[in-house]
């Protein structure tokens, strides 16, 4: 059975299932409670900046759903410590842009401890974080910095493109014994789709062929998957059938799935809402040249945001983001 939920609600459901099935799972973050939840207080809690954790404190209580001070370094440091000492924390980094003030616990602790202690410690930590543009949250709250976490050995980074995957990936992330960064793209947060009931996981490191075509491969993840799917519709009207591959996991990267679709079509366009330098799109392009060279029938093209901050203006933000039209035009240029 399934029913329609938004991505935000699907994440909420995954958190509830994780907490019901494992008493070691705790939530912590800025405003994850966010409001009057004291006994007898009828104030509605906020449940995080966009309400994703709403209702969880009422079910699981203040011992397991913790509001933290406005210190991301403290929040993540606490979470890493809790993970190292036996809990299975889910920390919410309100915006991925705040990596700047909280990186050390992730970069030097969470990612390294298991390695440094010869496997004698495990860090079953999940960091949930809003990423990307699309909500007019401006330059300091709209970045897609998953390329930073995906580039750190010892961290996993996943990013769902739809509600069903969001639920399954988050459950897999929480139950993973290693630190996982779970990105919540603003472009898909309010997207509504079928979500299976009950407890299920989407395996980390496995891409999904979201649409089967055969003439060209469109690779996306998170918010660019719906964009790639719309581009595939535009192209289909012109007789060009596109594979759309949803990476779902940026680290580990499902290299075989990328090479499989490339081998089939010979042409690949990767769509990333992040900036172009040192990014996931560049990484995918490099993979195609490195391991898929003989498959290439056209150049690998990247459709990304420009190398510029995300603008606040709705008009500019729309122009900044990759669009289905731009993806389709790029495919047409391949000839």
């Amino acid at each position: 059975m399934s029913r329609k939920l938004s991505t935000g609600r699907a994440i909420n459901e995954a958190l509830r299932i994780a907490m019901e099935t494992d008493p070691d799972v705790i939530l912590l973050g800025e405003d994850v409670v966010g409001g009057g939840t004291l006994e007898g207080d009828d104030l509605e809690e906020m449940g995080g900046v966009v309400g994703t954790t709403k209702g969880l404190v009422k079910q699981f209580g203040r011992d397991r759903v913790l509001d933290t001070p406005i210190s991301e370094m403290g929040l993540l440091g606490t979470a890493v410590g809790a993970a190292a000492t036996g809990l299975r924390p889910v920390a919410e980094l309100m915006f991925m842009d705040f990596l700047g003030v909280s990186l050390d616990p992730l970069l030097n602790q969470a990612a390294k401890l298991r390695y440094m202690f010869g496997g004698k410690v495990r860090i079953p930590l999940t960091v949930r974080t809003l990423c990307g543009a699309g909500m007019q949250a401006a330059a300091q709250h709209s970045q897609s910095l998953y390329w930073i976490t995906a580039g750190i050995p010892g961290l996993k980074t996943v990013i769902p493109s739809n509600p069903a995957d969001a639920k399954g990936l988050l459950l897999a992330a929480i139950r993973d014994d290693n630190p996982v960064v779970f990105c919540e793209p603003k472009l898909v947060l309010n997207q509504v789709g079928e979500v299976p009931e009950g407890d299920y996981e989407v395996p980390i490191g496995v891409a999904n062929l979201a649409r089967e075509g055969g003439d060209v491969s469109l690779v996306g993840f998170g918010g660019t998957v719906p964009i790639a799917l719309r581009a595939a519709d535009l192209l289909a009207a012109e007789g060009i059938q596109a594979d759309v591959l949803d990476l779902r996991s940026l680290a580990p990267l499902d290299e075989e799935a990328i090479l499989t679709t490339l081998e089939k079509t010979g042409s690949l366009v990767v769509v990333d809402e992040s900036t172009p330098r040192c990014g996931i799109a560049s990484d995918v392009a490099a993979l195609c040249v490195d391991r898929g060279f003989d498959f290439l029938n056209t150049p690998v093209r990247r459709v990304t945001a420009p190398h510029a901050p995300v603008p606040f203006s709705a008009v500019l933000e729309k122009a900044y983001l990759p669009s289905a039209e731009r993806v389709a035009a790029t495919v047409r240029e391949l000839g």
């Binding site: 010979g266 060279f293 003989d294 498959f295 290439l296 029938n297 056209t298 391949l334 000839g335």
Partner: peptide, 26 residues
């Protein structure tokens, strides 16, 4: 295109003689 190069190798045909129909004559 690299894929063309590989196929030409497999089919043992001379790439120099193959007219290109891709953008810019690729």
């Amino acid at each position: 295109a690299p894929a063309a190069r590989k196929l030409a190798r497999e089919l043992d045909v001379d790439l120099e003689r193959i007219p290109g129909t891709g953008p810019g004559g690729r």
